[in-house]
């Protein structure tokens, strides 16, 4: 059962934005609802108004625009996972999106909602980070672009100002060879939140000198984590045993999983992160 709130649906960003600004913390955006309704039910969120943005044009779908892919924030996780452009250019995102919830949840859950929920282990966010995704944030005053990496402020907190709505996610199609993988461990093999999820992307994997690595990890910090120090260290390196030992050390230094998580202990998370890192040294 949900405690009472009012429901209002808008068909333009402008109107929604004005309303959201006017009502501040009393209003909350409703997209797919798979996180918001859970929070309302638990009374962790007590909005006076739930603002449905599903009527707004231009927030749905995936479009290829020359060297870019633009994903509407209201695109569902199933639509992301099944999209041919995503499968072709961003397979790590496809894999991440496909692990979110289950088929029925993914029919409702949106990629924008998954981002704005602010979970440190969001299954679409971890892959988006290694693709250097950018987000377009809109309000009645216009639009701004931000690197997704800068969008997270803490557990459940994202960088949306009053009246701001996440509109699109922009991904640049790589014009160089890439190899990547999405890793995930959870308590059960059926539907479950990630105890740890991780994405690794290697640009120019076959050329040691041109190699660049990007790594993101979920559930090891208050926000989804890009491990820049490790990325820098690994770029242009040959993946030897010695490098792995050093990389492992840098990785562990960057992880700060909280004690008392119900998903996994810090010990286990670190252990699995190291194991996933070893993929680079075994498969590349």
């Amino acid at each position: 059962m949900l405690i009472p709130f009012e429901y209002i649906k808008f068909d333009s960003i402008k109107d929604a934005s004005v309303f959201l600004k006017e009502h501040g913390d009393d209003a909350h955006i409703l997209a797919g609802g798979t996180d918001v309704i859970v929070k309302i039910r638990a009374r962790k969120l007590k909005p006076k108004y739930l603002v449905d943005i599903k009527g707004i044009e231009g927030l749905k779908g995936i479009e290829k625009d020359r060297d870019k892919i633009v994903i509407g924030a209201l695109t569902t996780a199933n639509e992301v996972a099944k999209n041919t452009h995503i499968k072709e250019y961003f397979p790590v995102l496809k894999d991440g999106a496909w692990t979110l919830g289950d088929y029925e949840i993914r029919n409702r859950a949106t990629i924008g909602g998954n981002i704005c929920n602010g979970s440190p282990s969001a299954d679409t966010v971890i892959p988006l980070l290694v693709y250097d995704a950018k987000v377009i944030i809109a309000s009645d005053e216009g639009e701004r672009v931000e690197a997704l990496d800068k969008f997270f402020k803490g557990p459940g907190k994202v960088n949306l100002g009053p009246g701001e709505i996440l509109k699109n996610i922009i991904l640049n199609i790589p014009d160089y060879p890439v190899k990547g993988k999405f890793f995930r461990v959870s308590r059960v093999e059926g539907m479950d939140l990630a105890s740890l999820n991780m994405a690794i992307l290697v640009a120019n994997p076959d050329s040691i000198s041109d190699r660049k690595v990007r790594i993101s990890i979920g559930a090891v910090a208050p926000v989804p984590l890009r491990v820049y120090e490790l990325e820098e260290f690994l770029s242009g390196k040959e993946f030897t045993k010695e490098i792995f030992d050093k990389a492992k050390e840098i990785l562990l230094n960057n992880l700060n999983p909280r004690e008392g998580s119900l998903r996994a202990t810090p010990y286990y998370k670190k252990r699995m992160a190291v194991h996933y890192l070893s993929w680079l040294f075994e498969e590349i």
Binding site: Y7, G33, I37, Y103, E104
Partner: peptide, 27 residues
């Protein structure tokens, strides 16, 4: 469960299966 974990509430909206405990009637 009321939070989409158990699946007992599954129905189709326009032929797509969803967990109806996570959808509002007005939506």
């Amino acid at each position: 469960c009321g939070i989409g974990e158990c699946g007992a509430c599954t129905v189709y909206i326009d032929d797509k299966p969803v967990k109806s405990c996570l959808v509002l009637g007005v939506e």
